Simulated assay, not measured.
Amino acid sequence: MSEYLSVAIEAAKIAGEYQRNQFEEITEHDYKSPGNPVSGVDHRSEALIVERLSSSFPDHTILSEESGMMGDHETKWIVDPLDGTSNYLRGLPDFTVSIGLSVGGETELGVVYRPVSDELFAASKRSEPPDEAVTLGVSDRDAIEEALVAIPYSSRNKDRDRVWETHRYFGSQVEGLRSTGSGALDLANLASGVTDIVYAFDQSEWDRTAGRFLVEIADGVVTGHDGGATSTGDFVASNEKLHERATDLK
């Protein structure tokens, strides 16, 4: 296993252990914007991750949700220290630590860690993941009527007409909708074959980088809503068999 992947996994687990120990104990929080909570657990988790990454790679840039961009090196760590803060604060177990690594604009690795269940989703271009990691591989389901679809969207953006339109579109034809409240976890579930489509809106770089990489490594397809290439937070991810149907909504 490469040093990059090893350190990323260690950082995710350090933060995840802290979150697990504080879970159902911390409810105090502020709001960065309406519907977008932040707590001391977010900030402390970020500090633990930044400390671990910086101790091994002091020259690297770190982009993290709470502190923004730190540094200007072309090698950049992209961190969401607690994806699913609303879930965390309400005692729901669907929250994750998400860490990606970009080198020269190309994603090199992705780690998504779900602390409560101790599930590790990890992949790297440079090395194999550890044996403990969940096996990756998108589903081979080809019938839209049998698909499970996640529709993550940002709590920052209150203009949600397209989100509700998408719920109506898929809800009338698929087996079910299964969004978790953590966009990174939705993508990890897709990458491990648990669900079949993720139709995402307004996902920040820290929300999407690690999870999208996992989907691509798992032989999934990621495009814009219209089926074209995208590097934005609006995208569709699925297995190849369902992707044309997944992008039928215009």
Rank of each mutant, 00 (worst) to 15 (best):
S6V: 07
T195H: 11
E145H: 05
V236K: 01
S139Q: 09
S139K: 08
D234Q: 07
D159P: 03
V116M: 12
Q22H: 09
Q19W: 02
R20L: 14
A47Y: 02
L53H: 01
Y153H: 14
I197A: 10
G220P: 01
S238P: 07
Q173K: 15
H243F: 12
I14E: 10
E145G: 04
I26C: 06
V198G: 09
L187G: 11
H73N: 13
Y4T: 12
A11N: 10
V50C: 02
G40K: 09
Q19D: 01
K250V: 15
Y169F: 13
L48T: 04
E145Q: 08
H60N: 11
R208N: 07
Q22C: 11
S182Q: 12
R44A: 05
D42L: 09
L136K: 05
S154M: 08
D131R: 14
G176R: 06
L249F: 14
E3Y: 09
Y88I: 11
G16E: 12
D161E: 14
E119M: 14
D94Y: 02
D248P: 06
L148P: 01
R160A: 03
V116C: 06
G224R: 01
Q203P: 02
G84S: 03
V138Q: 05
S192N: 09
I99W: 09
A8H: 00
I78V: 13
P37W: 11
P152Y: 09
E128R: 15
K125D: 13
D234Y: 11
A200L: 12
K158V: 11
G183A: 15
G137I: 10
V112Q: 08
P130Q: 13
R168C: 00
A133T: 12
E74Y: 00
T247C: 14
K125R: 15
A11Y: 12
S39P: 03
E28S: 13
A123R: 08
Q22K: 13
V198L: 11
D72R: 09
L136R: 08
R126C: 04
